[in-house]
């Protein structure tokens, strides 16, 4: 497999992971609770909204929007991977890979700074999705930055 094909496949895989992680692999709270009927012991008394230890109760939790943003970002990264499959100059490939590196940074910023996740350590989004996205972004950034630099050298 040539370097360009490898770069293309790895970018495609990373894009798919950005889509899959917050929705299916280590889903954020809303998708996690939709997929399981988690037992809560004896049911608590029925009460009005705004109860609990963690903040407001919007229509969707903040982690839901992070998952949606990562979905869009994942699609962009997949598009970049498709563009890498087309023949092009070294500069063209290096440029796309540099954009992929930038996307990796944004992929880590969505759950940490730009949008965020739920505050409690016990929530699936903070316990699973957040570290997974940070690790994925770190690895993808390292890969795409190095690949971009190597592509520029030809």
């Amino acid at each position: 497999m040539t370097n360009n094909k490898l770069n293309c496949v790895l970018c495609l895989l990373a894009g798919l992971l950005y889509i899959m992680v917050p929705h299916y692999l280590l889903p954020v709270c809303e998708f996690a609770s939709a997929g399981s009927s988690q037992p809560h012991g004896d049911s608590g008394p029925e009460m009005a909204a705004h109860d609990g230890a963690g903040g407001m109760s919007p229509a969707h939790a903040v982690c839901f929007y992070t998952a949606r943003a990562e979905l869009g970002l994942g699609l962009l990264i997949v598009m970049g991977a498709i563009l890498l499959a087309f023949p092009g100059s070294a500069g063209y490939r290096a440029g796309i890979l540099a954009l992929e590196a930038g996307a990796a940074v944004i992929g880590a910023l969505f759950p940490t700074v730009l949008i965020g996740v739920c505050q409690s350590q016990r929530m699936p989004c903070r316990a699973g999705t957040l570290p997974a996205l940070i690790i994925l972004s770190s690895l993808f950034f390292a890969f795409s930055a190095i690949a971009s630099a190597r592509s520029r050298k030809g």
């Binding site: 608590g44 705004h50 963690g54 739920c118 505050q119 409690s120």
Partner: peptide
């Protein structure tokens, strides 16, 4: 013992 309610994703039952 009393269980609080989680009314949304970000509000945790305690």
């Amino acid at each position: 013992f009393l269980a609080s309610l989680a009314t949304a994703c970000c509000s945790e039952r305690v």
